[in-house]
């Protein structure tokens, strides 16, 4: 079964064809990696999935429902969540609050509950705090719960973004370069973290430059270049694809 499908998805920025006629399908509970050189259109693809930019043409279907016209928060509520290439934490908030706010749409109560601290409020707020701690434990930041988010080291900030995304209880989680700026040990940790997320029953779509990580972890790889899908397949298929090698190494070196 496929959870996410795009059909001839296109997004132009003026004259720039950021993505052009991209079609692909992501299988339920799989890890799909999107790779490609800088400016290939990977982040733009994520922005289309999450409603941050509207596609110029084409369709995006999530669990057989068309989502390409929806608002970002509507898409998040349906069950697609993401992290950002340039970290976007709520820096003034503490680490735990960043995760708590992630449960905004999952644990609800209204203004009057908040004012009167009624039962519903107490139960929900208790759950929010408890879940937030569990997510922090999951990514290994439980000892930093009280710290201001922007005081965390860079690598931890990236993991905190993952925890915040998980807190929305998504079916699909989109990770935009989750290991950017990390050392090999941290990268290794994130790799096993991604495996663990898959085991929770979630589908992961990953943008990643680290080929070692991509080849080791992905069930399916999609290669973009200049906005166009130039190859897709299992890691071993993609690895040996001449078009991919050309895109990555450039024409000169091939000849």
């Amino acid at each position: 079964m496929f959870v996410l499908e795009t059909n001839r998805l296109t997004r132009h920025f003026g004259g720039i064809k950021a993505i052009e006629d991209v079609s692909f399908k992501a299988k339920d509970r799989s890890i799909v990696s999107i790779i490609g050189p800088n400016g290939a259109g990977k982040t733009t693809l994520f922005n289309c999935f999450t409603g941050i930019t509207k596609p110029t043409k084409g369709s995006i279907r999530f669990m057989n429902k068309e989502i390409s016209g929806l608002q970002p928060h509507e898409i998040a509520n349906l069950g697609i969540s993401r992290t950002f290439q340039n970290i976007r934490l709520f820096s003034e908030m503490s680490v735990i609050e960043n995760v708590m706010v992630g449960q905004h749409t999952k644990r609800k109560y209204n203004l009057f509950s908040a004012i009167f601290h009624n039962n519903n409020f107490l139960i929900q707020e208790q759950n929010i705090l408890q879940n937030a701690f569990e997510y922090l434990e999951f990514i290994g930041l439980q000892n930093f719960a009280d710290m201001r988010a922007d005081n965390l080291p860079y690598g931890s900030q990236r993991r905190l973004e993952i925890a915040r995304a998980l807190a929305t209880e998504p079916d699909i989680i989109l990770l935009d370069e989750p290991t950017a700026g990390m050392n090999p040990a941290e990268t290794e940790e994130v790799m096993s973290l991604i495996k663990n997320i898959q085991e929770l029953g979630k589908t992961i779509i990953l943008i990643e430059h680290d080929m070692h990580l991509v080849m080791g972890i992905s069930d399916w790889i999609i290669v973009l270049d200049h906005g166009v899908k130039i190859a897709e397949g299992k890691p071993e298929q993609v690895r040996n694809d001449p078009l991919v090698i050309e895109a990555y190494l450039g024409k000169e070196t091939i000849n």
């Binding site: 999450t50 409603g51 941050i52 608002q71 970002p72 928060h73 998040a76 509520n77 969540s81 993401r82 950002f84 976007r88 934490l89 709520f90 820096s91 003034e92 908030m93 609050e97 708590m100 706010v101 992630g102 449960q103 905004h104 749409t105 644990r107 609800k108 109560y109 203004l111 908040a114 004012i115 601290h117 409020f121 929900q124 707020e125 929010i128 915040r164 995304a165 807190a167 929305t168």
Partner: peptide, 28 residues
């Protein structure tokens, strides 16, 4: 009380980063 509830947290999230806030489902 409102400040330390999900409503207050949503406000701060919007102030700090609208794109991130909408990406976790907050209706800006």
């Amino acid at each position: 009380r409102v400040e330390s509830s999900r409503i207050g947290r949503a406000w701060i999230a919007i102030k700090e980063n609208e794109i991130a806030a909408s990406s976790i489902g907050i209706n800006i």
